[in-house]
Amino acid sequence: MLSYCLTSFLVVVGLFQGPTPPRPAAQAPTKPAPAPPIIWSAARPLTAADFQGRPGPSDRLAGLTSAEIKAGAACRDFVFTGTVQATFDPATSWLRDPKKASPDLLRHEQLHFDITEIYARLLRQKLVVFQAKANCLKLQPAFNNLTKGVYTEWSREQNRYDAETNHGLNAARQVYWEKQTQVKLAQLEAFALPQ
């Protein structure tokens, strides 16, 4: 009974004090800056700590990898240059329960990032051919068409991977995809970024 009375007293005191005044701007809590994107590297696999986002209320999966292929093109003095990077976004990638994330779940999510690197390498390979015939006066439409085709293939492959492995729950298919992905990465090694 004493506990209840004490709790009630603290609530009443809080009511008499009125609303809490706003903090001065200098004391306002600051949000930490979002983690920068992680550039794909064979030497740097993803960890549970990299997944800093939160699932939405309708998300039913155990995890989500938000990866991108960042591509850019420019012409300087009528000389074409192109850049391509596979990146992972920690702020929008999440694991439902990071503390209980299994090695199997992390391997499945890593493979999404590895597939992204495969398509980044394919785009780099296509840029070699593209560079030889690039017309700097008509660069943007041609570059957009090139990247659109690669992005479409990449999206299909990501969806096929999830469908065939049942989001990593089909262990045999997961192993198959892991092996095939390593073979493809090796085949495209000439188009990897320097480590």
Results as ranks from 00 to 15, higher is better:
V79W: 11
Y119W: 14
L122W: 14
G72M: 02
H112F: 01
R107N: 13
Q131F: 08
P57R: 15
R60A: 15
T116L: 00
A101W: 07
R44S: 15
K70D: 14
I38P: 01
G56M: 14
S102H: 05
S66W: 05
F80Q: 08
G56F: 06
R124V: 01
V128R: 11
D50T: 04
G56Y: 06
P34D: 14
S102T: 14
F88G: 11
S66Y: 06
R44F: 15
S66G: 04
K126F: 06
P90C: 04
I115P: 00
P36R: 13
L111Q: 11
A33S: 12
P32C: 06
V129G: 11
L127F: 05
L122V: 11
K126C: 09
K100T: 10
D89Q: 14
G82N: 09
S58W: 03
I115S: 02
A86P: 02
A48G: 05
P34C: 12
I118N: 07
T87N: 05
P32N: 10
R54W: 10
L64C: 08
P103E: 06
L122T: 13
R54K: 13
L105K: 09
A74K: 11
S66M: 08
H108L: 00
G72N: 09
R124C: 08
T116Y: 01
T116N: 09
K133T: 10
I118W: 12
L123V: 02
S102C: 02
F80T: 03
E68H: 13
S41P: 07
S102I: 02
F113T: 12
K100H: 10
F78I: 01
P98W: 04
A67W: 01
P32A: 13
E117K: 00
A48S: 08
A35M: 06
L127V: 03
H108C: 01
A86F: 02
P98C: 05
F51A: 12
K99S: 13
P57S: 15
P55Q: 09
K133H: 10
K70S: 14
C75M: 03
Y119A: 07
R60Y: 15
S41N: 14
L122R: 13
K99A: 14
A134V: 00
R60V: 15
Q125N: 09
L61P: 04
E109L: 03
G53D: 13
L95Q: 02
G72E: 10
K100P: 04
D89L: 12
T92R: 13
L106V: 11
A67H: 00
T47E: 11
G56R: 12
D50R: 00
Q131A: 15
P98Y: 04
I118Q: 05
R44P: 14
R124M: 06
G63Q: 06
G72S: 12
A134T: 00
I39N: 02
A74I: 05
K70G: 11
P103N: 12
R54F: 03
W94F: 00
A67P: 04
